[in-house]
């Protein structure tokens, strides 16, 4: 007869539940269900729950003898903390499930570089990282980026904002086709003198914006074409 002994201890708002399965005389499939009012925090290896642990508790085949299981939960202790829901003899199972991809990661370790190794800001560069060796003609116009994606440098942003404000004022002046609207637009622009100045600087503004766009475009293409051969340089260094 299989018995389940439970003990709990509570530290720092976390309840640790220790379970002992006793007197198994053959390989058995057991289902242990958490009864505490909170999620099961299963034991983990390499960030992944150990085989058999689910959101509800533990389910798996255990071999003959005594077995210890344990989990944590933010819920308060209660009695009993867990119950044995199901006990089924599983004579054919040897208790060693076949290796899945998750098992391999759990056993051997996640090969991903640690977060600290990734340069700051690089997390958003999924698309950009590829642009370094992508076709420049393809990467420039074919991928319109949202503003959040390709953030403009801090030194450029104030100037662009000033230009945006002037363009918006010019647009609202151009769109005003009734007398009240025109009056409001002129007042918004800061008076007739300001409107005259704005009109005079229209061509210059446009030239300057186009010049910046042209230089940025050229630089972007050159940057895209120049792939830094890190591996080669590291090898000769």
């Amino acid at each position: 007869m299989v018995t389940l002994d439970c003990t709990t201890s509570h530290h720092d708002e976390v309840t640790l539940v220790t379970l002992r399965l006793r007197d198994l005389d053959a390989p058995t499939r057991v289902t242990v269900r958490n009864c505490l009012d909170g999620p099961v925090w299963p034991p983990r290896r390499e960030g992944l729950p150990v085989t058999g642990w689910t959101e509800a508790g533990f389910e798996g085949v255990v071999g003959p003898g005594d077995h210890a299981l344990g989990y944590a939960t933010p819920a308060s202790p209660a009695d009993p903390p867990a119950v044995l829901d199901d006990v089924t003899p599983a004579p054919d199972a040897d208790g060693t499930p076949s290796e899945s991809a998750t098992d391999v990661v759990r056993d051997l370790g996640d090969p991903s570089p640690p977060a600290d190794a990734v340069p700051a800001g690089a997390a958003t560069t999924d698309a950009e990282s590829r642009d370094t060796d992508a076709d420049p003609s393809e990467s420039a116009p074919a991928t319109p980026r949202s503003r959040a994606d390709g953030r403009t440098p801090a030194v450029v942003e104030p100037w662009l904002e000033a230009m945006t404000a002037r363009v918006e004022v010019a647009e609202s002046l151009a769109d005003a086709d009734t007398l009240p609207a025109a009056t409001a637009a002129v007042r918004e622009a800061g008076g007739l003198a300001e409107v005259r100045a704005l009109a005079a600087s229209g061509a210059a503004d446009e030239r300057r914006l186009r010049e910046v766009a042209r230089r940025a475009e050229t630089l972007a293409n050159r940057r895209a074409a120049a792939t830094v051969p890190v591996e080669t340089l590291a090898r000769i260094a």
Binding site: A101, V105, A122, A123, T125, S129, R130
Partner: peptide, 18 residues
């Protein structure tokens, strides 16, 4: 395979078997 650490970190190695 990509050559950035950010790309390597975003990848789920478990998908390699599929």
């Amino acid at each position: 395979c990509g050559r950035t650490l950010a790309g390597a970190r975003a990848a789920d190695p478990r998908a390699l078997t599929d």
